[in-house]
Amino acid sequence: MARTTMRRMTRIALALGAAMTAGAGAWALTAPHDASSGAPGRPVVLELFQSQGCSSCPPANANLNAIADRPDVLALSFGVTYWDQLGWKDTFAQPAFTDRQRAYARGLAAQLGTPQMVVEGREDLIGTNAREVDAALRRARPAMDATVTLAAGRVEIGAGRAPKAGADVWLVRYDPRVRQVAIQRGENNGKTLPHRDVVRELTRLGGWNGAPVRFAAPAAKEPALRTAVLVQGKDGGPILAAARF
């Protein structure tokens, strides 16, 4: 418990410092991504791991909200469960999302804590500094090692280059609407926090070894949810291909 608290306090201190830096410049995440740096039509995948019960998360959440409509970015917000004991249980959090962040922590040799943004499964940052987020998006070189299609309830991954250990195919369902969450306890007590692109479903469809493969795609539990498909190296590896529908 003491070690977890120390890690959390370290991340909070770093996040507060980054937030102060970001606030001084009133920077907006509106600069266009250089499309020539990645595959045509392939958005950069940015994942935010946050908790409604974390007082240092709102600036990172605001930065994700600011880029949610950018066509060159697939922004996904994952609620984690390990701060639920602080007095407020995150209304969007799922253990599977916590497991995903833990896999990234191992793969990137990163500290587990919130907030954390992961870009393309290759780089992580706190995410409270808008300039740093924009710089990370510009550095990203999104791979498209296979085609990804979704039609008639089937996800198809084409032939391409796969790691020796293979890859996972993930079906992501997320809510693009602004969801206002009134926090009634914990560190953010009394605040109403807007959330966008909140992941509601994360399903591993199966593996991919470079050969064409097809999976049945379960129907979304809510009609308003949008769909994305990620082809990713195992155990929190880099994003190899992605598409949103």
Rank of each mutant, 00 (worst) to 15 (best):
G233C: 10
R122C: 00
L48F: 06
N63K: 08
K191W: 09
L112K: 12
V45F: 05
G206L: 00
A19T: 12
L14T: 13
Q52G: 04
A110R: 02
Q52K: 02
D90W: 07
A135I: 12
A60Y: 10
V148A: 10
G153S: 03
L240M: 02
A143H: 13
W208M: 04
Q52R: 02
I126D: 12
T192D: 00
P194C: 08
R100L: 13
P176L: 13
G25I: 11
R196T: 09
G190R: 04
E132A: 14
A211Y: 05
M1V: 13
A110I: 01
A151Y: 00
N188T: 03
T4C: 08
Q85C: 11
V172N: 15
A182T: 06
T81V: 15
D197K: 09
A22E: 15
P223L: 07
F49C: 07
V73A: 05
F245V: 07
T30F: 03
M20S: 14
A2F: 10
L230F: 04
S55T: 11
A140M: 14
G17C: 10
A75W: 15
L74Q: 01
D84G: 14
L76S: 12
I183S: 00
G233I: 12
A220N: 10
L202H: 06
L202A: 04
A220L: 09
A159Q: 11
E201H: 11
V148Y: 12
G53Y: 03
L137C: 06
E201V: 13
P212V: 03
A68K: 12
F97Q: 05
L137N: 07
G160T: 04
Q85F: 14
A182P: 02
G23M: 14
E132G: 10
T10P: 01
T5N: 10
E123F: 06
A39D: 11
